[in-house]
Structures are given as structure tokens and as C-alpha cells.
Simulated assay, not measured.
Amino acid sequence: MTDRTVTEPGTFEFEGALDTLCVRIVGGAVNVVGTAGGPARLEVTELDGPPLIVTRKGRTLTVAYEDLNWKGFLKWRDRHGWRRRAVISLAVPQQTSVEVGVVTAGAVISGLSGSTVVQGVNGDTTLVGLTGPVKAHTVAGNVEAQSLSGDLRVNTVSGDLTVVEGSGPGVRADSVSGSMVLDLDPAAGADVHLTTVSGEIAIRIPEPGDADVEANTTSGKVSCAFDELEVSGMWGTRRITGRVGDGGTRLRATTVSGAIALLRRPPVEDAPSFRKDL
């Protein structure tokens, strides 16, 4: 095992095979990108406060503060009162499994085929072009995902979830007050399950859809662009149920007081911007 204490901006390379990356920072931003070749590379562009500890143990690379552990990460408090900020970028092999934890910092993770786990407190997370399974747990940060083809699991307290071009085998998202906007082209047999207390849910699927739908809201409004589906309930709980196309994909959405909208994506050449549809 080798340790390196980083006290100022700089660039570092790591020879040899690498299959796991762990990052934990406070303030600033972290950017992780998968690459087809070359050694793993760390670039620290800003660093204020205590040093970062870079540890290489076998095939695992860790970049973190000494007093910031993964266990209990979402409840961490800076007992030393340090003012911290770190802006770092890492290039790692595409197959690397990644764990990223950020406090009041943004995270961008792209181009990986290994598993990805993100925990965030007051920081937004952006996920792009990931083919492996993804888990994201945030307190107040938003999660934005584009072109994901792996399984996606998201849990937020007040952060919003946006998914564009999602084609994985499943999406499971839970939130207290965050809204969810998903543009999906799910794989055959995919399972999509969305739950929020007060947030709104909007889902767009392509024609013909091929989905078995069960969506309900206790007191929110509903809208549905598929004539094949039944909208029921005049007072209290309202539901959208039925089958679109040949079915197969299971689509479930539940909110207590938020609205639910199920939208139809027209053929690509005629498709307007998703956000304009909303």
C-alpha cells in the first residue's frame, strides 16, 4: 500500500491495473471519466483546507480526506471547522467500479462500464454514458442521467431526478419531495418503479410503448397521452392503468400529492424537445 499527501494542485499518474476507485471530497467538484487506455490519472486543480490523502492499495485507488469515511457519509460533520474546497478530475479504465461521495460539491461521472455508487449531500450529480449498474443516494442534490443502459437505483430526500435516453433493465427511484422526469426507452422486460411523497412524476415512453402501466396519485392531477390506458378515480386517488402495445415492461409510479403525467414520444424525426412537452 502506498500513501501520498496532496497539499496543492498537481497531476499524478498511476501505473498498473486498476479496477476500483473511491473518492470522498468536500466543496468544489469531482469529475470521473472512463478511458480506453493509458494509466489512471488524477488532476487536482483547486485545493483549500486540509490535504487530500491518495492511497493505492493493490487495484484500488482512494482519493479522500483523512477524516471523511464512507461509512456514515451522509451524516458527516466537519468537527474541525476547516474551510474545504477541492476540484479534482480522474481518468480511469472504463471497466473501473467507482464510489464517489461529495458534500456541498458536484459530481460528474461518465463513460464507465463498471458499477457506480454515488452519495451526495447538497451537491448535484450528473451521470452520462454508463453501462454498468448505478446507485445514487442524495440528500438535497439533484441527479441528472443521460444515456444509461445499466440498472439505475436512486434515493433522494429533496433532490430532483432527470433521466434522458434511459434504456436499462430497470429504474427504481424513491424521493420525499423531489420531482422525477424520465424519458425512457426501456429494454424488454424492464421494471420501472417510481415513488415520491410530494414530488411530481412525468414519464415519456416511445410508441408503441410495450408497457404494463400502474400509476396513481392520492391528491394530485393526472394526464395521459395513451388512449389505450384507463384513467379512473374522480375523487381522492386517481389512477392510470392498462397495457400499451404488447406489454412486457412493468411501469409503476406512485405519489401522494404530486401530479403524474404519462407522455408519448413520437417518432424521432418528428419528436420535439422533451422539456417543451412538459
Rank of each mutant, 00 (worst) to 15 (best):
H80M: 08
K75Q: 12
S115W: 08
T156S: 15
R85W: 09
S147T: 11
H193P: 00
E144I: 10
R85G: 14
D78F: 09
L130Q: 05
V192N: 01
T125L: 13
R79M: 07
G101E: 07
V134P: 04
W82G: 07
D183A: 02
G166R: 02
G150M: 04
G123P: 15
H137D: 15
S113E: 10
T104M: 00
I88G: 05
G166V: 03
L127S: 11
S175A: 14
G114W: 07
G123L: 14
G132L: 05
G132M: 04
A188M: 00
S110N: 09
A187R: 01
N155M: 07
G166C: 04
A145Q: 03
G168Y: 10
R172D: 11
I109P: 04
V118C: 15
H193M: 00
T131C: 03
A190G: 00
V92T: 05
D185C: 01
T104V: 00
L184C: 01
I88M: 13
V103I: 15
N155Q: 14
V87D: 10
V163A: 09
S175N: 04
P169I: 08
R77I: 12
L148K: 03
V154T: 11
D151Q: 13
V102F: 03
R79K: 15
R85F: 03
V87R: 10
S110A: 12
V117W: 09
S113M: 06
V181C: 01
D174Q: 08
V176Y: 00
D185V: 07
N122R: 15
A86Q: 11
V98I: 12
D151N: 07
R153D: 11
D183N: 01
N142A: 15
V134C: 14
K75A: 12
H137A: 10
G166T: 05
I88D: 05
G141S: 06
I88P: 05
R153Q: 13
G150I: 06
T126M: 13
V92G: 04
S110P: 01
D174N: 11
R172V: 13
A145G: 08
V87M: 09
G101W: 06
L161C: 12
A187H: 01
P169D: 08
T126F: 14
G159C: 08
D185E: 06
G178Q: 04
L152Y: 03
R79C: 04
A145T: 08
Q146M: 07
Q146V: 12
G120C: 11
W82T: 11
G123Q: 13
V154S: 05
V143K: 03
A188F: 00
N155K: 11
V98R: 06
G106M: 02
G166W: 02
L182N: 01
N122W: 13
L74G: 09
G189I: 01
G166D: 05
